[in-house]
Simulated assay, not measured.
Amino acid sequence: MGSRIGPLAVAVLLVLAGCSGMPSGGSQTTQSSEKTTVQTPSISTETAKEQALEAEETRIKRILENASNITGSVGVYGEKKATVLNRSSEGIRIRVVMSYSYEYHCNGKDGNVDSLTTQAVYFVTNDSTKLVEVEKEVNLIC
């Protein structure tokens, strides 16, 4: 009987070892010690900022030039500010603040407006520049 307990005890230990996660020769899930690296877009931060600034300037001019009460020059001037909000593997989110001015004719009066600003967020990738959110819109006097 002593000879039968030995092999039986070994069999029970093998079964228990398999249940407890010890290697048993079957398929196992292993965890890798390698760290995941986040891929960043190949577009540079400076290039992304330039593209966002250009897109906002174009947007402002398009709105003002299509307004019926704008009579004279439309200008984007002063400090143009582009701030990176975040960078991911998909692209770069950039907040743009831009000053503008224009001349208008409204209700029989002529005038000009200076020192107005817009604020918008753009998402820039290697292939596109998309307006995500307008935080402060172009202000039309009338």
Results as ranks from 00 to 15, higher is better:
10 V>R: 15
79 E>R: 08
86 N>W: 07
71 T>G: 01
116 L>R: 10
131 L>T: 13
75 G>R: 04
40 T>P: 00
104 Y>E: 03
66 N>V: 12
63 I>Q: 15
86 N>T: 04
68 S>V: 14
9 A>P: 01
99 S>D: 08
54 E>Q: 10
47 T>G: 02
105 H>R: 04
97 V>P: 00
97 V>H: 02
89 S>F: 11
107 N>Y: 06
54 E>T: 08
54 E>H: 02
74 V>Y: 00
123 F>Q: 05
100 Y>G: 07
43 I>A: 01
69 N>P: 03
37 T>N: 15
62 R>Y: 15
41 P>T: 13
95 R>N: 04
62 R>L: 09
33 S>D: 13
119 Q>W: 11
3 S>G: 09
123 F>E: 13
35 K>E: 15
134 V>E: 06
37 T>W: 14
78 G>D: 12
136 K>Q: 14
97 V>S: 01
23 P>A: 14
117 T>N: 14
19 C>T: 06
132 V>L: 13
83 T>V: 06
10 V>I: 13
90 E>I: 15
120 A>Q: 02
125 T>H: 00
111 G>S: 04
60 I>F: 01
21 G>A: 05
101 S>T: 12
34 E>H: 12
112 N>E: 15
29 T>D: 09
47 T>S: 14
43 I>C: 00
133 E>G: 07
46 E>C: 09
32 S>R: 04
129 T>R: 05
140 L>M: 11
61 K>C: 02
77 Y>R: 04
95 R>S: 05
42 S>M: 08
56 E>F: 09
24 S>Y: 06
10 V>H: 10
113 V>G: 10
85 L>G: 07
5 I>G: 08
95 R>Q: 05
10 V>N: 07
79 E>M: 00
1 M>T: 11
105 H>F: 09
126 N>F: 08
20 S>W: 11
133 E>I: 05
67 A>D: 15
10 V>F: 12
72 G>C: 02
88 S>V: 00
33 S>H: 15
126 N>D: 06
102 Y>V: 05
35 K>R: 15
11 A>K: 14
100 Y>H: 03
78 G>I: 12
